[in-house]
Amino acid sequence: MAESVRFEVPVTAEEVRAFARAVGEDNPVLYDDLAARHSGLPGIVAPPTFTMTQVKAMPPGERERALGIEVDYGRILHGEQEFVYRRLPVAGETLSAEMRVVKDETKQGRRGGTMRVITFETVFTDAGGDEVLTAYATMIETGKDPGA
């Protein structure tokens, strides 16, 4: 079983703008290079949840195969999501991502079934090897109905 899986997440201005539009953003630092520089940023920055686009490079299914775990996507819910930022990604850079499973626990559910909690950690670093942000996606795999 692989300890972690590595992939790249390109941050293009086009994708940043499309993502910003999709969450209704109108802040010019997400759209306009000059506006971003006026705000002291090196260029257009990505919205805080932009790295969700990591599924383009590492889709559900593929990530489990790479990490050697099995998940039933018919019974999965997104429970929690957390981001810890050093800075926001900047349009034009390519982030290196390293993903691993940091939690995989099965608990007794309230109705007698089981509930599995899986947390995927993805650390995003820049071309200089410095951390940009870390994302934690916690998925809940609900138990098969014990009565079924």
């Binding site: 705000s39 805080p48 997104h78 929690e80 981001f83 930022y85 926001l88």
Partner: peptide
């Protein structure tokens, strides 16, 4: 005043 000041963001659905 903009997304660039965020250091942590956590949501539970």
């Amino acid at each position: 005043g903009g997304p660039q000041h965020l250091r942590r963001y956590k949501v539970r659905f």
